[in-house]
Structure formats: C-alpha cells, structure tokens
Computed example of a mutant assay.
Amino acid sequence: MVVPALPAGLTRRLVVWELVAVFAVSLGASGLRALVNFVGAVTAPAPLSSQRATVLGSFTPDRPWLDLAYHLVSIATGLAPVLLVAYLLVRSGESLRTIGVDASRPGSDLGRGLALAAAIGSTGLVFYLATVALGINKMVVASSLPDVWWAVPVQVLAAAENGILEEVLVAGFLLHRLAQLGVGRGRALVISSLLRGSYHLYQGAGGFLGNVIMGFVFGWLYQRWGRAMPLVVAHTAIDVGAFVGFALLAGRVSWLPGA
C-alpha cells in the first residue's frame, strides 16, 4: 500500500480535528460508554462470567411492528458517521473509493472477505468460550429478538451496519488519515486496534482483547491491500453467523454460554 500524501488544502490540524469529530460522535463515544459499563460490571457483586451482555435485543417485545421500526431507525442512524466520513473525504478531493469502499473488485473482495470471516470467526468463538471459562468475560447474548418474521432480516441488516460502520471508520478512514499524518504503520495499527477493542469492553476483558487482536489482523490487511471492502464483507459475515447462529442454538445446546 502506497503511503498517501496529505491533500492540498488539508492541514495536519484539520485532519486531527476530523478524527476527533468523527469518533466523538461514533465509536469513540461508544468506547467511553463501554468503559463505564466495564467498570460497573467488574465492581458488581456477581462475577463477570455470570453476567450477560446483549448485543442485539428487543426494544418493545410486546409490540412487534414498533420493535421493527425501532430497529430499522437504529440501523439507519447508526450509519450516519459513514456519511460524515464520505463527506470529509470528498471535501479533501478524495472519496470512499480512496479507502477501497467500492464495487470495483466484487469477486476478490467477496472471496477474501469470506475466507477471513471463516478464519476469524472460528478462532474467535474458541477464544470467547475460553475467556468466559476463565471468568474474564460476560456471557454474550448475540441476539435475543422475539420469534417474528423479520428477526433474521434485521439480524442481517444489523450485521451489515456493524461491518460497514466499523471497517469504514476504524480500518479505512482512521488508518488512511493516520498515514497522511505521517504516523508509522505499527503505531497506527496499535491506535486502530485499541480503539476497536475499547467499544467492546462492555463484554468484558475477553471482548476487549479479542477485538484488539482482530483489529491488528484487519488493520494489517487494510495496510497491505489498501481496501476496506473485504473487511466489510468479513465483518458482516462474522456478525451474521453470530446473530443468526446464536438465535438458532439458543435453548438447544449447553456448550454455548448464555444460549
């Protein structure tokens, strides 16, 4: 990946403020909330491994159509920071294509993304089970949506939201802007990975560590490929497997905590 130059008219100060603004209204704020949640969890009387963290839950389980409306609005507004990033890139004479978010290589992006999802998803499940057994992570309830016709479509849409939001911001935009600031690749990887881990702290230390490792892998691949699209595919596939898989296994298996 070629180190990008700072576009004409875009100063280092402006880039720093761009990053502060984008993450203050998105995943950086989520990281702060997750930290407070983590402090509350580890200081609670109940051990961490006996607590639950619900990722995709119901807003109004007794009113399915209103519940669906809440989810669709939540997914749509959750992607707003991606629009902000798109605007900032265009303003600097770039675009989402600059960070490899486009449909120019569908076959390559899909193949790389699904292969990465298989590798990360399988090892991530083993890592999660180990951290719960060690008592350093909550039982994660990936999806607790009611048994309604729209449950799977919403799970897929929520997974796509996570994949697009996180990989466009934390892999593509952040690493691109850090490179333009002259931050070394290793240091940029540390920043990106710690940020990714921070907003998963609500799950416990295991969620934090697992996502820091995932952040290193995804960040390194972005630096190598110069494309965030395979990472969007991978992240979406991983979350689809987690949401839909958990819902299918809940109440049917004993080896999955929280199911």
Results as ranks from 00 to 15, higher is better:
L72D: 11
Q155W: 01
T77Q: 12
L56D: 08
W149N: 04
G184D: 08
F246H: 06
V132I: 10
A76K: 05
F246Y: 12
W255H: 07
G241V: 10
G258M: 03
N162Y: 02
A46S: 14
V55C: 01
H71A: 13
R196D: 05
A250T: 13
A119C: 11
Q155I: 06
S58T: 15
F38Q: 06
L125G: 12
S95Y: 03
V253C: 08
A171W: 07
M139T: 11
R13E: 12
L231I: 09
L169F: 04
L88E: 01
S144D: 15
V132H: 08
A44S: 15
H176A: 00
I213E: 00
R177M: 02
I238F: 09
L35N: 06
G31S: 14
L231S: 07
L27I: 11
S104G: 13
L35E: 04
W17V: 14
V39I: 14
H200R: 08
P81V: 12
L110N: 00
I75Q: 02
V39Y: 10
V232P: 09
S193M: 06
P4C: 10
L89W: 03
D239A: 07
S144Y: 02
A46E: 15
G226T: 00
W255L: 12
V3L: 09
S74P: 00
G210I: 08
G215C: 07
L88I: 07
S254F: 02
D62F: 00
Q223Y: 14
R13C: 02
A188M: 04
L56N: 10
S122F: 13
A205K: 05
F218T: 14
G111L: 14
A133C: 06
G28D: 05
R33V: 14
G219R: 02
S92T: 08
A86C: 03
D102P: 04
A228E: 03
G78N: 05
F216Q: 01
G182D: 02
L157A: 15
